[in-house]
């Protein structure tokens, strides 16, 4: 368990305030655009398409006009105790000791999809097809993220290249330490209502370390022991109850 604490390095995490999330989808689009994610002609095929950050839509189950819709953006949870890592036979996915981010090396991946089976959050996607950037759209591909090939698994990296970008900038300015918010993933930057807070969970000065102490903070499927570094916040009890598989009467 000591390994998970990762007390020396950074432990990047995210808090998503579901009361602030309006379901606009910008995080998904910013992510796709930042990370050279390919687009299928039929994106409605959710078993074949690729999205590093998917949005789930849930309702409180009440009848009209008491119905309420809530959206849950789901990036990779970057678990402190990741179920995907030990199952990889090719050592293609690891937990980075410096950042706590779960890496995925596409050139190393053999496409067995054990990690996908192991991940309880469906955060990973498999390239069933060659990446599709047809007719000129390969011109917007960013060299900061390597495009994937058919037959490998990919997933959210917390925009790791943005960490490298921020570090290079800091180095250019003669600094080694990053300021808060100097490195944020594309989805955090894009969120128009600032529903997502990003930072170092090991740094008590970062806003996020305070936010996760809130009584409204929770994680998805917390009782599996995966220790996700992506937290959610909501004042709605019905929503919190949805975050894990509780027996009747068990929640609160």
């Amino acid at each position: 368990m000591k390994k998970e604490e990762n007390s020396k390095g950074n432990r990047y995490g995210m808090v998503i305030d579901l009361d602030k999330c309006t379901g606009c989808g910008l995080c998904t689009i910013a992510c796709a655009s930042e990370n050279n994610i390919s687009v299928l002609y039929d994106e409605s095929d959710k078993t074949r398409n690729i999205a590093w950050l998917q949005i789930s839509m849930v309702t409180n189950g009440k009848e009209f006009p008491e119905t309420e819709v809530v959206y849950i953006p789901r990036p990779c949870m970057q678990c402190d105790n990741p179920p995907c890592v030990p199952v990889c036979p090719a050592t293609a996915t690891r937990k980075d000791p410096n950042t706590g981010i779960i890496s995925q090396i596409y050139t190393r991946c053999i496409g067995c999809r054990y990690c996908m089976a192991a991940c309880p959050y469906h955060a990973r996607a498999f390239n069933w097809f060659d990446p599709l950037f047809p007719e000129g759209m390969d011109r917007y591909l960013s060299p900061e993220v390597s495009p994937r090939m058919r037959g490998v698994v990919e997933k959210c990296t917390f925009c790791h290249h943005r960490l490298m970008r921020a570090k290079s900038k800091a180095y250019a300015e003669g600094r080694r330490d990053l300021k808060e918010n100097e490195y944020i993933p594309a989805c955090v930057e894009a969120c128009p209502t600032k529903a997502i807070t990003f930072g170092d969970l090991n740094n008590s000065e970062h806003t996020i370390s305070q936010l996760i102490k809130s009584p409204h903070a929770f994680r998805l499927l917390e009782r599996l022991g995966t220790k996700p570094k992506v937290y959610y916040m909501s004042t709605k009890n019905w929503l919190k109850r949805m975050a894990d598989n509780y027996l009747t009467g068990e929640f609160k």
């Binding site: 690891r94 410096n98 190393r108 790791h160 490298m164």
Partner: peptide, 11 residues
Amino acid sequence: ENNNACFVCHK
């Protein structure tokens, strides 16, 4: 040695 973590050099 920490810089030998995969994501330090891979993108």
